Amino acid sequence: MTRPAPLEAWHRIAETRDAAGLDDLLADDVVFRSPAVHTPQEGRAITTAYLTAAMHVLGPQLRYLDEWHTGNDEGPDDGSGSAVLEFESIIGDKTVHGIDMLRWGADGRLTSFTVMARPFKGLEALIGAMAAELMKGLEAEQ
């Protein structure tokens, strides 16, 4: 089974930890759902900020363990699709195990990116590290 192009693009970005490719991959109205924030975050700019921070926090130790997807030969004929990517990473001395759920439209741009993480201690470490990384990004913009 061949990986759909949006999924290939995400894997390239995650492996290289180069956020430059996000501009082409994310739809203008993409929605990001974080395990740490109650409300969905809407738009390319905020999603780029979260994913860039995640690449710094999870990236060095990030390993994708498995994936399931529709698109190309499966699913709708319009080019849209979805994927679930199982991942593992280490933050400090805590292991984080989770999934990324991605959806894309017919144009190949991601319309939704949802992250779920466990166990609780790993999620706590992730929340703390992400908050610190997002603050660094805000300070750099000022």
Rank of each mutant, 00 (worst) to 15 (best):
D29L: 06
V30A: 05
P35E: 00
P35F: 00
A36P: 01
V37T: 12
T39Y: 12
T39F: 14
P40T: 01
P40L: 02
P40D: 01
P40R: 02
R44A: 07
A45E: 13
A45H: 11
T47L: 03
T48R: 12
Y50E: 11
Y50N: 12
T52N: 03
A53H: 06
H56N: 12
H56D: 15
V57S: 08
P60H: 02
Q61D: 15
R63D: 09
E67W: 11
E67L: 13
W68K: 10
W68T: 14
H69R: 09
T70M: 01
N72Q: 14
E74I: 13
D77I: 10
D78E: 02
E86I: 07
F87L: 03
E88A: 14
S89W: 03
S89H: 03
I90K: 15
G92W: 04
D93M: 10
K94L: 04
G98D: 05
G98N: 09
I99L: 13
M101C: 12
M101T: 15
M101E: 11
M101H: 14
R103H: 11
G108R: 00
R109H: 07
R109Q: 12
F113D: 02
V115L: 10
V115M: 10
M116R: 14
A117N: 06
R118V: 02
G122K: 06
E124H: 11
A125S: 04
L126Q: 04
I127R: 11
I127K: 08
A129D: 08
